[in-house]
Design a protein around this nucleic acid. Structure first.
Lengths: 251, 251
DNA sequence: GATTCATTCAATCCATATGTTGAGCAACCG
DNA sequence: CGGTTGCTCAACATATGGATTGAATGAATC
């Protein structure tokens, strides 16, 4: 039972074990793959779709996705000619979050890059999740999901309106003037909500960004609503119908 | 203020940003560096010390440590001829934890390696942190820190007795026969506490391992006691005295 | 000052990763 | 069936990372 274990055995065991963990870290160790995870945290997507958004050759995107798959960070669902990739589970996003947290805390470069990029726009007074929840219950705020509509359909904060930042200019009349507007997007390094808030303020609205993105909201265990007709979680045989537009958007 | 930002600018920004995060991930992407972090999570240590425990050439260890340092995952404190490395902060350990969590959840290999290594010894009925805290207050358990004494001195669970697993055979008479004995060590993949529990049970004691290691306990925000005279947290000028043995061990 | 010791640096070799290109494959369409 | 589409694979060039060796640094000691 308590068989004596040699130091050499100990050593080999540790080596094998940490080699496995290093495999996971290796999968994270590429800017392109991190960006893929960032996009996949919003919703499952096809190879071509991802490649287009990241401006990558398709073969390159495919290879990165397979590398992520070998590390079990993402999973594929094949449907006809398409391969839809998605995050394997919530623990993958928590790892991604932990990586960004360390990066932010430790790398002065990150701060500099962000500051350089969005000049004065870091004083938009973001609202926290707890306060948003409270005020949503009171009904005195309007909540905008500024991500592309497909991402809204794949999961959004209950009560949010889909208002992709690209469409917001033409949809201003849908917004109330009295209540404060809260905008959220993909996460801390996504500019959709910041752009929306800046634009809304220019037009005389009271607006603030949410401090976190939808994946962070979900990871915090807060409620997320999925539209009927959104790409199914279960790998059902052939749900071609899932590609149609549905969006029974709530106001 | 809301200066229009071109798609190309967006793209370059994302590239730079994720390149920085990838740098952090790259630092994690090596079995040897992960093992270094594992050891440094216990206490700060010198290069030679780490190299000896991991059976690495010193130059190799030094280079890995510098690579971790460039990613800001560890920091150095130089004292005379020695370079003492330590984890940069708690967020680094949380990242390490998140990596292991994903590895455990996703890689069947990890399970296999662990199972292969410790045959039947995974049914030692570990006790959780909450239950341990409760029973420590009641005073009906004895808590053993089975790590090397230096690690105990650098930080241990309040009330724990330092009982390195290598010394336990010769110190059995210090242990009470009535109360249950709880043993903890470096973490889930450390075998010190399992070995101690197995040995104690063979000798007729009631013993169980704690489900987490000291760094996990600390990361959970639970109290940790540091011995007076242990290597100082603050990089004080020249605290040579810190190398003497102190250990006013409490029973 | 010369010596010793812990650590770092520099140069090398080898292995692995990345990006690119073009070919291959399977599903679907006409 | 032949063509198109979405993805994957294979082969290559280039770049990067890791381990090893021996020399260099820098602090402490003699």
């Amino acid at each position: 039972m308590s068989a004596p274990l040699s130091a050499a055995e100990h050593h080999a065991f540790k080596q094998e074990l940490f080699a496995e963990f290093a495999r996971v870290a290796k999968a994270l160790a590429s800017p392109h793959r991190l960006q893929l995870l960032y996009l996949l945290a919003q919703r499952e997507r096809s190879v071509e779709d991802l490649a287009r958004e990241l401006e990558l050759p398709i073969a390159n995107a495919s290879q990165h996705l397979q590398s992520l798959r070998r590390a079990r960070l993402v999973e594929v669902r094949r449907e006809g000619p398409y391969a839809y990739y998605r995050l394997a589970d919530e623990s993958v996003y928590r790892l991604y979050q932990a990586l960004l947290e360390v990066g932010e805390a430790r790398l002065a470069e990150v701060e500099r890059i962000v500051r350089d990029y969005r000049g004065g726009r870091d004083t938009l007074e973001p609202i926290g999740s707890a306060e948003l929840l409270r005020r949503l219950k009171q009904g005195d705020v309007v909540l905008l999901d500024t991500r592309p509509e497909e991402e809204y359909r794949a999961g959004h904060i209950p009560g949010a309106i889909s208002m992709p930042v690209k469409a917001i200019r033409s949809r201003l009349r849908e917004l109330p003037v009295g209540r404060e507007i809260i905008a959220y997007c993909r996460g801390a390094y996504c500019v959709f909500s910041d752009e929306a808030v800046t634009l809304l303020r220019d037009r005389g609205f009271r607006a603030r960004p949410l401090s976190v993105g939808l994946p962070d909201w979900r990871a915090a265990g807060l409620p997320v609503e999925v539209d009927a007709g959104a790409a199914p979680e279960t790998t059902s045989p052939t749900t071609r119908a899932s590609r149609r537009r549905v969006s029974p958007r709530q106001r």
